[in-house]
Design a protein around this nucleic acid. Structure first.
Length: 166
DNA sequence: GCCAACGTTGGC
DNA sequence: GCCAACGTTGGC
């Protein structure tokens, strides 16, 4: 008990994230059907999101899985980060839709983490519902013009959203 | 399909 | 360093 507490106190504060994906490309069910229910979150080609993946994510952090560009956009599940940022190998593959000749193994430009499925919400929390929650007025996802596919979620926002899950 | 908003590129 | 042009995102 004491030992366990001391381990926790040595850890960096756990962070929370939101991972956006178009379900027609990669859905929460695709994650469930992945080996070990785990997938590399690759293909992110935005520098700010890259910095989160490369510098800020830790093993054990949690994230929401968000479906975008679909009939009912919203949060559909919860994941856990199981690796810190590593070079996004899809950038090295000329046949990949995410190929970037400016990235190479010696000096990778893009990064990815591994995420593991934790749970699927019985009822998705729709974007429409998120917008109505007064506790989420400063949530990055809801800011006008926001286009980040990976973004931080504060502990307060995380908990306010969990309350919305039925 | 439309279009507002944004990030990136490249000429200068 | 500026900024127009372009491509992309993503809600609707």
């Amino acid at each position: 008990m004491i030992a366990k507490e001391s381990i926790h106190s040595n850890k960096v504060q756990k962070r929370y994230w939101l991972f956006k994906s178009e379900p027609s490309t990669f859905s929460i069910d695709d994650l469930i059907n992945s080996p070990n229910r785990t997938a590399s979150w690759d293909g992110v080609r935005n520098f700010q999101a890259r910095n989160y993946l490369r510098d800020a994510m830790s093993v054990g952090d949690n994230g929401f899985f968000y479906h975008s560009s679909c009939a009912s956009p919203g949060i559909v599940g919860i994941v856990q980060i199981t690796s810190t940022g590593t070079a996004d190998v899809s950038a090295f593959d000329p046949l990949s839709p995410h190929y970037d000749p400016k990235s190479n193994p010696l000096n990778p430009r893009w990064f990815m983490v591994n995420v593991k499925f934790i749970k699927k919400l019985k009822t998705p929390i729709t974007l429409q519902a998120l917008k109505k929650n007064p506790h989420l007025s400063s949530f990055t996802l809801l800011q006008k013009g926001n286009r980040l596919s990976v973004m931080p979620v504060t502990k307060q926002q995380w908990e306010a959203i969990l309350v919305m899950a039925k």
